[in-house]
Design a protein around this nucleic acid. Structure first.
Length: 573
RNA sequence: GCCUCGGUAGCUCAGCGGUUAGAGCUGACCGCUCAUAACGGUUAGGUCGCAGGUUCGAAUCCUGCCCGAGGCACCA
């Protein structure tokens, strides 16, 4: 048995995430967590909301609420939606929790002791009207290079030139529109990543089995230009973790907080503490401290490609730099983006389907199946309504759902709602078992390797094998000549339904539950032995109920409606 | 501009040096009639982005170009 620590990139607090966000981290992480649990491994699957930073403050202000209150509410909203998507987190924490405050301050103190923190005096743009320092991207003006009027302080979207806010002509705050800006001196802490470049480089080099997407981004940051740069880890904000050096004050840093990207990954650890404090576990250190039992833990992170630099470089620099025996990540599974009907999902323009809306129109399993079977692994992928309809109707309703329906209804009409006895298995059954042995081992191998799309294809092939068998064995024909033979075919087919309930569970947890209920399953253990054995668990006389149809079909009318409804401009902040 | 990934049948993708390039969906035809008009079988469909090169042999390696997506460090 292996112990799997699994984390999903933590979603930002300022709103409900869209399906592209979901498929890039939380959903595949859930698939993997469910699978590893099903295989009998001990799993700790953690996620949280990422709550600090300027966008959270602005979103709260827009909602007319204190930021702490806003975050608490949005956390509950995200937690509820996650639960409805059947994301099986062992704990869904908050980066603003007291555990993360202490731990983040602790790491900063350790890094300072190790000489890996430098204090840098710099000048940043301050908005007198807004009463705050502005991040570069919150300042707009005219580009000195091309004359574009909507250039941001960090970059011009028109000519792509890298800019500094002071370069802009007529700069103004995008928050208030105010031009009452000035450069003010401020001091910030920098994490001396450059001092750890070689260590990080060697560490990344040792990970030759990681997705190229992961390592290529890390390598780019390590070797581009002058190499890995130091990174500011504090900000002039109110909402965040106060800068402290461990337990002590940090002279000169009063009123400042840690940068959200410094404290967010530390929340992975703090979340395990929250898990214990919530009474769900008893020992978080055996998952996170290699001196306290975590040396045999396998730690896997899931994230979209935009998160890769922080997980391959900044967070490892924090962990390694502390000089303490914290568990480092073993495998980083990263994803490309999911596009929507020929363009990008857009939170600001309300383009695409958001998690709450998705569940309003269809249950979680429908989305889980399409998203996972089309996960953007090797390149960006695209969601289209037509493809969604075709895939869901064919795979779920026709191939899986209809198989269950035809078997259970045939049995009920000929033998009643119990597993029938009598008859013998022959070559057809041997062929089916052989086919399933091959398919199941491929499925398991792909799931172990986190090959999400390929796993979905294997699972589908397992469902198809049932229909092929049924068609060739034709119990409806056998019944007329040899009812006992028909009974044997039906008995095996009912056992196939049990197998499907078990192996489909990571993708389709609700359908799995409904099948388990219908088949009166008390034991849902994975088929670790032979397939023949797994297909003999439901013995003659075993009672079951014919379930309602597992999946309904999506109609053309619905698709036409949704195409219009989700095309853009969601009327909401 | 630099870097990375991708460009394979109408669609979504696999294959990444070696027999006639594969799968699912879609189309056509046949079969079945237990089932959510579902299922099974057969079949059609491809200058493997373009142009060179290496090799006995390239979708697969190299070079250049074209197209798409992303990264390029304080947006989380």
């Amino acid at each position: 048995m292996t112990r799997h620590l699994i984390t999903s990139a933590i979603p930002y607090i300022n709103g409900i995430k869209h399906l592209g966000n979901l498929v890039g981290s939380q959903l595949p992480a859930d698939l993997y967590a469910r699978y590893q649990r099903a295989r009998g491994h001990e799993v700790l699957f953690l996620c949280a909301t990422d709550e600090h930073g300027t966008p959270a403050e602005l979103a709260a202000a827009k909602a007319g609420k204190p930021v702490a209150e806003y975050c608490a509410e949005m956390h509950d909203v995200q937690a509820r939606i996650a639960r409805d998507f059947r994301l099986s987190f062992d704990h869904f924490g908050r980066s603003s929790g007291p555990q993360n405050h202490r731990l983040t301050q602790h790491f900063a103190g350790r890094l300072a002791e190790a000489g890996l923190i430098s204090e840098v005096d710099e000048h940043q743009m301050y908005s007198l009207s807004d009463g705050r320092f502005l991040p570069d991207r919150y300042i707009e003006g005219t580009c000195p290079n091309c004359g574009f009027e909507g250039a941001r302080g960090d970059q011009c979207d028109n000519c792509t030139k890298q800019l500094d806010p002071v370069d802009l002509i007529d700069p103004h705050s995008t928050i208030s529109g105010s031009k009452d800006l000035e450069m003010r001196a401020t001091k910030h802490l920098f994490l001396r990543q450059s001092a750890m470049k070689d260590r990080l480089d060697a560490w990344i080099d040792s990970k030759d089995d990681w997705p190229v997407l992961t390592t290529s981004i890390a390598k780019k940051w390590l070797h581009d230009g002058d190499g890995l740069q130091d990174r500011g880890i504090t900000r002039d904000l109110d909402w965040g973790i106060p800068v402290r050096r461990g337990e002590e004050d940090w002279p000169g840093m009063e009123g400042k907080v840690f940068y959200v990207w410094f404290d967010a990954p530390i929340e992975y650890i703090a979340c395990a503490q929250e898990w214990v404090d919530a009474g769900k576990g008893t020992d978080w250190e055996r998952w996170w401290r290699t001196d306290k039992g975590a040396e045999d833990v396998r730690y896997t992170q899931f994230m979209g490609k935009d998160n890769v630099p922080f997980h391959t470089l900044s967070f490892p620099a924090t962990i390694l730099g502390s000089g303490e025996p914290w568990k480092l990540v073993d495998y980083i599974k990263s994803f490309n983006y999911l596009n929507f009907e020929g363009g990008q999902f857009s939170t600001s323009r309300g383009r695409g389907v958001f998690m709450d809306q998705a569940l309003e129109i269809l249950p979680a399993d429908y989305w889980r199946w399409w998203l996972l079977s089309h996960a953007p692994e090797s390149s960006d992928a695209e969601f289209t309504w037509a493809n969604f309809q075709a895939s869901v109707n064919k795979d779920l309703a026709d191939v899986l759902g209809n198989f269950v329906s035809r078997v259970t209804k045939f049995c009920r009409s000929k033998f009643g709602e119990t597993v029938p006895e009598g008859g013998d298995y022959g070559p057809r059954e041997d062929a089916l078992v052989a086919e399933l042995e091959t398919r199941l081992s491929a499925y398991a191998a792909h799931m172990d390797a986190m090959e999400v799309r390929k796993s979905a294809q294997d699972l589908r092939a397992i469902w198809v094998a049932g229909n092929e068998y049924l068609q060739s064995a034709a119990p409806w024909a056998a019944y007329k000549e040899d009812p006992a033979r028909a009974a044997a075919i039906v008995r095996l087919s009912l056992n196939l339904i049990r197998l499907y309930a078990v192996v489909s569970a990571p993708f389709l947890p609700d359908a799995s539950d409904r099948l388990a209920e219908a088949m009166h399953l008390s034991d849902r253990s994975w088929p670790e032995g032979s397939v023949a054995e797994a297909l003999s668990l439901l013995q003659p006389g075993w009672a079951f109920d014919v379930p309602d149809n597992l999946f309904r079909k999506i109609t053309d009318e619905e698709i036409a409606d949704w195409q219009v409804r989700f095309a853009g401009t969601r009327s909401e902040g």
